[in-house]
């Protein structure tokens, strides 16, 4: 369907340090950064996080055509959100920072410096992690993910469910296309211009066989896994478990330091917000 779902790491990404990072490192970095970035409103800190994320992006050597579509979509999505934030409450920035320096206009829609600064922070929150995720998306071998998840403490059954989902994505895509075509061949109308109701009806007509075939798949796969003793022990090992390399330690330590700084800033700023207007 598109290239993000294709499995293998691209040619130009081989031998990059970001490709060599283990799955476990990537999950830890991604989780911790996205959580601290969600909470913190310290502008400088968010900028530092963005720079950190760009380092990964740099290493991945992605081609413009690989990321173009996604970047456009993110830009549109972010712009829409920022506009909504502004339209609904143009004075929100002033509320947050406790002052009001009008830049332009007056009345309800008066644009303040505070609002602008707040929107800048929002923007950073929307985009700071994008480069990192793009880099990981194109440099991670999916087989490492489950082993990595299990290693950082997820129960192995949940980790394996995630592995199975990656295993089944291509199958489901293929089934879905085949089912939809087989339904058309039976006489189901698929014109593009159908109304909402018809589209819903049509989707169900395709979803129902998908339900049957996936329930079948679940039943048979369960049997296949039981026959090979899945879930009979408290513990499980992973063929794809990887040894941490120097680069992993380096990245993990830097991330740890960044997180510590982020937490420290809550004290320095006296809260989540960095307020330049005081």
């Amino acid at each position: 369907m598109n290239q993000q779902i294709s499995y293998d790491v691209g040619k130009s990404q081989e031998n990059r340090w970001v490709t060599r990072l283990t799955g476990m490192t990537k999950i830890l970095v991604l989780l911790s950064l996205s959580i601290i970035g969600m909470v913190s409103y310290d502008t400088w800190y968010l900028i530092v996080l963005t720079v950190f994320a760009v380092l990964f992006y740099q290493s991945a050597h992605l081609k413009w055509h690989q990321v173009r579509g996604l970047l456009y979509a993110i830009a549109a999505f972010t712009a829409l959100n920022l506009i909504l934030v502004y339209l609904f409450n143009p004075a929100y920035g002033s509320q947050v920072y406790g002052s009001s320096h009008i830049l332009i206009g007056r009345g309800f829609f008066a644009l303040t410096w505070e609002e602008l600064f707040y929107l800048l922070n929002m923007l950073l929150k929307y985009v700071f992690i994008v480069p990192l995720i793009l880099a990981f998306l194109f440099t991670t071998n999916p087989s490492e993910l489950a082993a990595g998840m299990s290693r950082i403490g997820f129960p192995y059954k949940i980790s394996y469910a995630v592995e199975l989902s990656l295993r089944y994505i291509p199958d489901v895509i293929r089934d879905f296309k085949q089912i939809s075509l087989a339904q058309q061949a039976r006489g189901l109308e698929m014109s593009k211009k159908a109304g909402l109701w018809n589209r819903l009806k049509r989707s169900t007509q395709i979803l129902i066989p998908l339900v049957f075939s996936s329930m079948d798949k679940i039943e048979i796969t369960t049997r296949a896994m039981k026959l090979r003793r899945f879930g009979t022990k408290q513990r499980r090992t992973w063929y794809m478990t990887q040894k941490l390399g120097k680069i992993d330690y380096l990245v993990l330590v830097s991330t740890g330091l960044l997180i510590a700084v982020g937490i420290g800033l809550f004290w320095v700023d006296g809260g989540r917000f960095y307020n330049p207007f005081k």
Binding site: Y7, P142, S143, E163, L164, L166, R167, D171, K217, I220, T221, R223, A224, M225, L227, R228, R229, F230, G231, T232, K233, R235, R236, T237, W238, Y239, M240, T241
Partner: peptide
């Protein structure tokens, strides 16, 4: 047991992981 449908039997993401599956479940060392 080798089941009737090899697609459903194949639970690993790659050939190597699939071959290792039963041993992983027995928690055999790396």
């Amino acid at each position: 047991t080798v089941l009737q449908d090899p697609d459903a039997q194949f639970v690993g993401l790659t050939v190597a992981e699939d071959i290792a599956f039963a041993l992983e479940n027995d928690a055999k060392p790396d």
